[in-house]
């Protein structure tokens, strides 16, 4: 990975100290065992329960539209800027374009992130762009580009979903024509247990294969979907890990259901914004 030499970077070979602590402490496998025995998650949630969401639009005054979302400890700010002409393009395109930038703040994760986008961030930007492209009426913005920036200030799992949901709100506030309201949810899968809206520890837990004999189920992984509410369309779908068809299908159902739970929240936030606008 290229390093940005204009900034002062941390030492090249430094390692967060927690790594050495964790080796002796709680492994993903033990954490899962605790969680499975209790039938509840460490923060007292049911397996298929979403964390409480705080959603607020108009967080950045300079931007045309913006939103701030908190899902448990995960905090994301998304801003949308005025459509502008697509730079450095000589041909005319009838459809507009989106530019998405997803960024983890350097201090947002357990490990320090660099200022430059790494591969994971680039991939998330791609997924976000894909999700929003199907929600925005691109034909209404010929030859224009809408810039969307998502900054994760604290990553405690499901940051991408949070960013997509918030971006939907920010786009509406910016007055960008949209087909529908967009919501996004993540689910983690481990041993057939579906953890809706996993935090970062649970996310980690869902990325590994347990070695001990008692866990025969190979299923593990993460699923992220984005849904357009009225049209009941999935505008984005992403899965990784190792998941069988049945689990994938049932995961999809859980996700769809959870998306519906979030929709009223998004609607409430937007209606509040609109009625405030009318009054003033």
């Amino acid at each position: 990975m290229p390093v940005d030499h204009k900034r002062i970077n941390g030492p090249e070979e430094s390692v967060p100290y927690e790594l050495f602590a964790r080796l002796s402490g709680l492994t993903s496998e033990k954490a899962f065992e605790q969680l499975y025995k209790a039938g509840k998650r460490s923060d007292g949630r049911e397996f298929e329960e979403h964390r409480k969401i705080f959603l607020k639009n108009g967080a950045v005054s300079q931007a045309k539209g913006s939103a701030y979302i908190e899902m448990g400890q995960t905090k994301v700010i998304v801003s949308v800027f005025d459509p502008r002409e697509i730079p450095n393009r000589s041909d005319y395109s009838l459809k507009g374009e989106l530019y998405c930038e997803f960024k983890f703040a350097p201090f947002s994760c357990a490990k320090r992130r660099l200022h430059q986008q790494d591969n994971e961030e680039k991939q998330y930007s791609c997924i976000m762009k894909k999700a929003l492209e199907s929600a925005v009426c691109l034909h209404e913005l010929p030859n224009f580009q809408v810039d969307i920036y998502a900054l994760v200030m604290h990553n405690d799992g499901s940051a991408l979903s949070a960013a997509i949901t918030a971006a939907g709100v920010a786009l509406v506030e910016a007055g960008v024509p949209m087909y529908d309201i967009i919501t996004s949810v993540t689910v983690g899968i481990q041993q057939g247990v579906k953890l809706v809206d996993p935090d970062s520890l649970e996310e980690q837990m869902c990325q590994v294969q347990f070695l001990s004999e008692k866990y025969q189920d190979n299923n593990h992984g993460l699923l992220i979907i984005s849904k357009l509410h009225t049209q009941e369309q999935l505008c984005q779908f992403y899965q990784n890990g190792y998941v069988s068809l049945e689990v994938l299908k049932s995961g999809l159902e859980v996700l769809s259901k959870t998306c519906e739970v979030i929709v009223p929240l998004v609607q409430k936030c937007l209606i509040k914004h609109i009625t405030n606008g009318i009054k003033s």
Partner: peptide, 12 residues
């Protein structure tokens, strides 16, 4: 098993 599924391109 599925190791990755992702939607590509525009369209839902």
């Amino acid at each position: 098993y599925f190791s990755t599924v992702t939607s590509i391109g525009i369209g839902s």
